[in-house]
């Protein structure tokens, strides 16, 4: 109940922000009867109606995970964001091994299999990407070898 209501409020606020953004769109000298604002505004309107329906006719709450699981989800997100920034400067091998190992550990918390998974995926995928698919990946940071 409450999850849907809360999300409905978020949707309405988001839709209003979107509509406000749409009103700021600059128009140019070339214009057509509909213009660049109408369609986004209609979308925001429909979204507000959907949000209201979610508030007034909510469905049953889903099973939200416990704090520990939310923690491991948060860790996974942080690791992925770090990976997104690391893959260019640090090359493919090291970040991939680390990131895959941590993700594997979040799914099944056993240190040795996770570490092996990380290293195995890093080496295996690199070979596939580089030699079978011919992608231009940098294995290690520039200047190491």
């Amino acid at each position: 109940m409450n999850s849907d209501r809360l999300f409905g409020v978020v949707v309405i606020l988001g839709a209003l922000a979107y509509a406000a953004g749409a009103l700021q769109i600059q128009t140019s000298f070339m214009s057509d009867p509909v213009g660049s604002k109408t369609f986004p505004l209609v979308l925001a309107g429909v979204a507000v109606i959907c949000g209201l329906i979610m508030i007034f006719r909510p469905e049953a709450d889903p099973d939200w995970p416990g704090l520990a699981t939310l923690g491991s989800l948060a860790i996974s997100v942080i690791v992925m964001v770090g990976y997104a920034y690391a893959i260019k400067p640090l090359g493919f091998m090291l970040p991939t091994a680390l990131c895959a190992a941590i993700l594997s550990f979040q799914i099944s918390p056993r240190a040795v299999p996770s570490a092996l998974t990380g290293v195995g995926l890093s080496v295996g995928l690199f070979i596939v990407f580089k030699f079978a698919l011919g992608l231009g990946l940098q294995p290690f940071p520039k200047g190491w070898f």
Binding site: I87, C99, L103, L121
Partner: peptide, 12 residues
């Protein structure tokens, strides 16, 4: 625990 990290890395 092998499959999903693999999916993730391939997506990236």
């Amino acid at each position: 625990w092998v499959l999903l990290p693999g999916v993730m890395m391939i997506s990236f």
